[in-house]
Design a protein around this nucleic acid. Structure first.
Lengths: 155, 155
DNA sequence: TACTATTTAATAATGATTCTAAATAATAAA
DNA sequence: TTTATTATTTAGAATCATTATTAAATAGTA
């Protein structure tokens, strides 16, 4: 976990930004909540616990910076809020999401699954794909058949 | 084009809503700009030309209603604005988008392309898919190789 | 006509995000 | 070191999209 921060620090430096205490605190929160999909406000409230002097605007600026550097991804699930999601290290593409219409849970799919589709799109639409966003809306395994187990999404 | 409005009228009635003059004007604008991806504000400004008394809140309410009835889809490309996109008649799923990072153009893909992926997701993640959102970010055919022709995205 | 429900316009309110100005810290130059 | 320059931060104001409110208008119906 510690090395992860170091690597992010390097990424910042490579783009001639610094890992200020506020930025570090923000990154730490993101690392500690990798599973979640936090809004800027969420992050702000959590960061305040470890760095009480920080301002909301700084959190926004930091998240924007991290988004620019592709360290986090900014997503929007249709409620009025942007959420920020740490990108898997070394991942070329953004991972996918499963949004449950019933309980609101957001699960992640780390596999790409889109290779074939992207090949078609690149060729047929003559479109050079840089990144993608894929979200499925539906009923999750928890709400689907009660008593079901968590599927092995690491297959 | 006229029958299209009639069918939408029926859909409203089926859900016990009426096609008021304001709603009709709004739908007409959407039909006249099917290619575009208008924000609520955009729609408002256009509707005002044919129905000057309409209010912005009414446009919002109408778009929300149409979204509920799956007549339009509400999308968000990351700028702070929601955009509204008329759903292809009879389409079970929302169509995909190609957003050009260079010129900002938004093109549509009407084909599904996701059958295989969805089959995998449904099975492996035990997730009952109701709808999807797929957007590719990259460089469009216009910006890609200058002088290129528009690809036949109707293949 | 009278009653009821729906829809509307206008505007206020809200909530997320961005901007601004002043303060502070870091860095580079002399 | 001292000074100048630049980046970064904070706090709060401002902005922008969206939603809620309220009273009036409209339509549908008994």
């Amino acid at each position: 976990m510690e090395t992860r921060i170091d690597r992010i620090k390097k990424q910042l430096h490579a783009a001639s930004y610094k890992l200020t205490p506020q930025r570090e605190a923000t990154v730490r929160i993101l690392l500690d909540h990798e599973e979640d999909h936090l809004s800027a406000e969420d992050v702000y409230l959590l960061v305040k616990d470890i760095a009480p002097e920080i301002g909301l605007a700084t959190v926004y600026r930091t998240l924007e910076l991290l988004t620019e550097l592709k360290i986090v991804d900014k997503i929007n699930f249709g409620d009025g809020v942007s959420r920020y999601d740490l990108r898997q290290e070394g991942a070329a593409h953004f991972h996918h999401h499963l949004v449950c219409l019933e309980c609101g849970a957001v699960d992640e799919i780390q596999e790409d699954l889109l290779e074939d589709v992207e090949a078609i799109v690149e060729k047929r639409w003559n479109f050079q794909i840089k990144d993608h966003r894929l979200t499925f809306h539906g009923i999750c395994w928890r709400c689907n058949d009660l008593g079901a187990e968590k599927p092995e999404n690491d297959a």
